[in-house]
Nucleic acid binder design. Structure first.
Lengths: 235, 235
DNA sequence: GATGATTTGTACGTATGTATA
DNA sequence: ATATACATACGTACAAATCAT
């Protein structure tokens, strides 16, 4: 029986907001796996709060798509069908493409410089094979592209979709050679953005995601992220 | 003083779900205007429920982007800056374009037929100037395009964005000549979809939204949707 | 299929934080 | 600026639904 150790929240803002952050983090990092039950009492217990904020947090997570709620039947970590997963990757490719295209057209000089500097620096991570660091950089790189589109709502949609995909793409850089391949794809995107070629940047970014999608599909079929369901005390 | 008449919910599922539906509907139809305060007690009073489900509904609406919540300071109908509004219209254009492109490539024969039949029938509404009916048809028409893309997540994002824009585009068909213009734009989209020309369908759909955007901008600057704020008893 | 246990849904009370005089 | 009024945040209690036996 897994012990459900208590863990006081930081209470940066409201209890609910902290709960949302905490649970969302555990979902996207894969600690909580798709299909896993999210019991209100256990969550309240774990974070030492009452059920009221837990319920509000679950509802918000549900609206975000990270959690599924069936009336009177509780909440589970969202479990997506292969069809829906592929639809999300498809959306991600489209969104990345849009962001890259708009970034190529709209980024300020400072933004372009930041993109290029980061990209050049990251080559060191590839040479040394620093997977974890490269993954962190990769997130920042893509965030720059979303931001550079200068369109708040597109940025929001893209980040939200990325969050929902996170549980399914975690192991992508473990796949041999993926680091170098990712970098060279980034290189193509950066070059297109720097020369203001929206169409090329969009196409490259879209292709970049498609490749990640295939890599993740392999991972999924490994069973590593297969929906789970029992193990009650795992919060 | 506007009377806050009580109104029992239908209780199809849970109270909260009905509340979300009811309040979202009042927001997108413009009964509740951007900036208007959503007082928990008044809402609870109006729908004859306790504050608990009201709070959960407000949080879900907030996650949907229809409502803004400031900690300890209550909720208001989401008020968007002109910049954010234009970003949402831009997103809408991109999403519509994607849906139309994918529909052109993926719709089944039955779906194509339904699209064309509805479109041809709608010409009658244009001739008779049936604005309300045409608006209803228009919603269905676009829903067909979203559905026809055969990509659940893209469909969800598009519908969600459309909801958030609804309060700002309501008067679009009141603008003289807009009905006929809308129909001819639809005609271009339908033709492209039927002949399987994804690029043309996407471009036409994207342009279609851009024009709506401009029409709505006029409407917004009319003050018709300017953020309100007092009138406490208006729930 | 009925019954008890468990879990979710709703109501309400109190404390805390925010706005107002 | 201080105090007062008021709205929100959270906890607790109870009701209703689901699940297991």
């Amino acid at each position: 029986m897994t012990t459900a150790r208590r863990q006081k929240l930081k209470r940066a803002g409201t209890t609910v907001d902290e709960m949302v952050r905490a649970v969302a983090d555990r979902i996207v990092t894969g600690v909580l796996r798709p299909g896993e039950k999210l019991d209100e009492n256990s969550l309240a217990d774990r974070y030492e709060v009452s059920r009221t904020p837990v319920r509000e947090a679950l509802r918000q997570l549900s609206a975000m798509g990270l959690v599924e709620r069936r009336p009177n039947r509780g909440a589970i970590v969202a479990v997506v069908t292969p069809a829906h997963l592929s639809s999300m990757f498809e959306s991600m490719a489209e969104l990345e493409g849009i962001c890259a295209r708009l970034s190529a057209e709209r980024m300020t000089t400072a933004e372009r410089r930041a993109l290029e500097v980061g990209h050049q620096d990251s080559s060191r991570l590839v040479r040394t094979g620093a997977e974890a660091e490269y993954e962190a950089y990769n997130t920042a790189f893509h965030a720059l592209l979303y931001r550079g589109a200068h369109s708040k709502h597109i940025e929001e949609m893209t980040l939200a979709t990325r969050s929902r995909l996170a549980p399914f793409r975690r192991a992508q850089f473990r796949i041999s050679g993926r680091l170098a391949k990712s970098w060279s794809e980034h290189d193509e995107i950066v070059a297109a953005v720097l020369r203001g070629d929206g169409a090329a940047a969009g196409a490259a970014a879209k292709a970049h995601v498609s490749i990640v999608s295939e890599a993740s599909a392999v991972f999924v079929s490994d069973g590593g992220q297969a929906p789970v369901e029992p193990s009650r005390k795992r919060i």
